[in-house]
Amino acid sequence: MSGLFRSVLRAVQVGAATCRPKNFDAHVSVVPARLFCASAGENDLGEMVKKDKVVVFMKGTPAQPMCGFSNAVVQILRMHGVENYASYNVLEDQDLRQGVKTFSNWPTIPQVFFNGEFVGGCDILLQMHQNGDLVEELKKLGIRSALLDVEKDEKSK
């Protein structure tokens, strides 16, 4: 996130400290600021998801996931030997938490991106893992799945 984005948001939040987000929308004077924030946020996210081959927005960190679904994504990637990916903890940043949902038009966290493209959430990654698509998608990224190196009967787990 750019410093500008953050500081603008901070300013807006301070001004609306007593308002809940819903009332916030109705407050005409802050609307231009919100619009500006939204577009700045999207630009940032556009950069964030492209910066690394594999990007995960999750609750907690890969070392300490804070939700079962985020944990599942981490475990699936680990099984494929994908350790080197960018992860963003949405619990640490409420603007990011909402921003990424808007950005990808997807209502839940975790969210996985490959080469800047939205792949899906936990269920999709799990099903891609189960039907073998994940190995293929990783190959397109130039990542060899570690599962290719283990026995075939292990793979069907």
Binding site: W106, P107, G120, G121, D123, I124
Partner: peptide
């Protein structure tokens, strides 16, 4: 899968 889940998501938005 993504398209299918998007259909469900928008149905239950």
């Amino acid at each position: 899968l993504l398209q299918r889940q998007r259909m469900v998501n928008s149905c239950l938005s």
